[in-house]
Design a protein around this nucleic acid. Structure first.
Ligand code: MN
Ligand code: MN
Ligand code: ZN
Ligand code: ZN
Lengths: 142, 142
DNA sequence: TTTTAATTGCAAGTCACTTGCATGTATGGT
DNA sequence: ACCATACATGCAAGTGACTTGCAATTAAAA
């Protein structure tokens, strides 16, 4: 659908997605590139103070719709987002229940491993969620 | 902590949980036993029309707190609940993206299989979520 | 029974978004 | 470069799914 975010600049991403290159969208993309791991709209908005939160919500939604970003639902109230990895780098996360540290886990093999175990009642499985929660090393020594 | 819901009656469950056996709680437990799979508060409240939704929310929360019920977060807006299976029958679900049919999958082996793959950055993994989404057989032939 | 702390119902509040609408602006056509 | 206009933005108001405050009930201990 679109090239990876790594080998396209922000204008190209927006053009490919048929989204206008507004000041706000360019600012958002610039800030998002600085974040590692799934972030909340609140966090991104703090980094893009000049625009309204509604604009952040709407643009993130557009980016999800065109496949540039994807939603990540962890155990907190707000949805998180991250650049959509290609099929090759589809992955999951490990979240520390104590400090909130999020680790990006390596490539996911769930689909191939488990699509068959989902019984005879399903014709196909095309999505899954898998997230781990625990205690990170630094939290375990306190 | 408490015996399985299968071999305890509703009064016993509440007594063990140190929760008063109110008309509302007894009605909720009675109705919940009729439901298979994770249900929403809205659905349970429709089956317990005589009480306020707030009471349903509060009591479900108490039951989760004492380990009788557990939360299940699928892709829809509302949380769902089901009787908490013992460690032995911890399991996950497959949800049809078309009709919403939910299948109870067999026992989960995620923890043993994947706790080690979560890198050297985590001391322990004590929770995980795993849910599948796809198309069920009956929806695939329409 | 009487006492008392737990529980309930109703109303109001909160949180994370979502929508309506008037104003502003990026882009395609001239 | 200029225009036209469909797309975007900001502000305010609206939603949906809970959560909380509080006075009135009620289960169950004394
Ligand atoms: Mn990630
Ligand atoms: Mn289940
Ligand atoms: Zn930690
Ligand atoms: Zn179906």
């Amino acid at each position: 659908m679109y090239g990876s975010v790594d080998n396209m600049n922000d204008h190209q991403i927006l053009a490919t997605a048929k989204l206008r290159a507004t000041t706000q969208r360019l600012a958002m993309l610039k800030e998002m590139r600085k974040i590692h791991g799934p972030f909340t709209v609140e966090r991104l908005h703090k980094m893009c103070r000049s625009m309204d939160v509604v604009t952040v919500y709407r643009n993130i939604k557009s980016l999800v719709a065109v496949g540039v970003m994807r939603e990540v639902r962890l155990k907190d109230a707000s949805l998180r987002y991250e650049f959509s990895p290609g099929e090759e780098t589809h992955h999951h996360h490990a979240v520390c229940n104590s400090c909130g540290y999020i680790e990006e886990l390596s490539e996911c093999k769930m689909h191939s491993l488990f699509s068959q175990q989902t019984s005879k009642k399903f014709k196909s499985i095309d999505e899954h969620v898998l997230e781990f929660f625990g205690t990170c090393n630094s939290c375990s020594k306190k």
